[in-house]
Design a binder for these strands. Structure first.
Lengths: 212, 212
DNA sequence: TTCCTTTTGTAACGATCAATAAATAAATCC
DNA sequence: GGATTTATTTATTGATCGTTACAAAAGGAA
């Protein structure tokens, strides 16, 4: 059932990689099908036949991103020996990935569809779910570190996880604004310099009333 | 020369405020003139006569944002008694502004035009310039704190300024993802808990070679 | 009143948007 | 070889994009 009919005349993965770069650079809304098909070196019907409509094409490109350029950023969270190493490794991997060669700056998950109330909320919901999953991943790692004694028994693991991802999201914007690898590394250095004091002070939420 | 001709039949500032909310929510690209004019309660020719084209309308809306919802976030940087107070005040003001009433979540400067290579790079450049100006503002405040002895003589003020703005940019994305005021406040608590250790460790850049 | 200026509503402009119909081309299966 | 199936090319679809002619409407100035 496989080799029936005229064979496809292009490399599907390579075409998807080019589409990914366009989505990554311009965002979902900013990438027109005309530009996408041109970058893929195809005519529109070939794209629609191979990937479906624009939303499906973006989802496939997003999946490819997670397998390629986006991989390796969050992979070390579970395997890192300590929570501190997990955070430092993820942030330093981000600093590298966000300023890597000719690839678009910053993270595709953060930058390619932020306007949730768009004609295609599905796309934005997908990306949001990925971001929230990363928070959960960090939170679980911190809970394990709390069980291991690396973090205090009263540590607010959720708050720490949100803090770290907040910084990582901001790094994507800095990268888009032109920050180079040294600048992003300096940001990570700042964060890690404060880490020990941060986890020493982290407490279960409740005294937010002292907000000025 | 003022009262000549037919008087305008709408409140220009009120109409601009409604346009601002649409741009804030949908972004520059995501906001169509059809939706903008509908939200403003006007027909297209009235909008073009009063504000010019879409780019000019966005710039006017951006200026209004800086005077209203966006005001008060960065105002305290120079006047705060210490650099620590400046950072804490700015971040806490952001946490409030990003989760305020019925207003769109997050910061319009960060969220409304991130795709720099768009058909309208001018808009993105404007916002980028605003963000870089905030970094400079923080850097200068930190330099003053260094002269005052609050920061060490060898502190890397630029790196600290980029770190703080990175966190603030990330907070906009968290707000868009649904983070409430307590969550953002907890992020600020984390940052401030690490602040003293961070400024104690901040050194002039140069040993970034120990990046893993 | 009669100009003169500006705003308003209606309707439409060409361009671009995502998506597709129809016809041709190239492979396998019988 | 003939039939079938899939891919490619060309051209086009209706919808929406930002923007604007045009003429009626509403004020001050003569």
């Amino acid at each position: 059932m496989n080799g029936k009919g005229r064979p496809r005349g292009f490399d599907k993965t390579e075409a998807l990689r080019r589409a990914m770069e366009v989505f990554w650079t311009r965002g979902f809304q900013g990438a027109s099908m005309a530009e996408l098909t041109a970058a893929m070196g195809l005519n529109a019907p070939s794209v629609y036949a191979a990937f479906g409509d624009k939303v499906a094409l973006f989802r496939a490109a997003m999946a490819l991103y997670n397998e390629t350029d986006g991989a390796g950023i969050w992979d070390g969270i579970e395997t890192a020996p300590t929570a501190r190493d997990a955070v430092a490794g993820m942030l330093r991997a981000s600093a590298e990935a966000f300023t890597c060669g000719a690839a678009p700056r910053g993270c595709m998950v953060v930058l390619s569809a932020l306007q949730s109330e768009s004609p295609h909320p599905e796309i934005c919901d997908d990306l949001k779910a990925m971001r929230l999953r990363n928070i959960d991943l960090l939170e679980r790692r911190f809970e394990r570190a709390r069980d291991d004694g690396e973090l205090l028994a009263g540590s607010d693991c959720r708050a720490l996880a949100v803090y770290v991802t907040t910084l990582q999201h901001g790094m994507s914007i800095q990268a888009r604004d032109g920050a180079n690898r040294e600048t992003l590394s300096a940001v990570v250095d700042c964060a890690m310099a404060g880490w020990d004091a941060m986890i020493a002070a982290s407490q279960p939420s409740g005294d937010n009333s002292r907000r000025q």
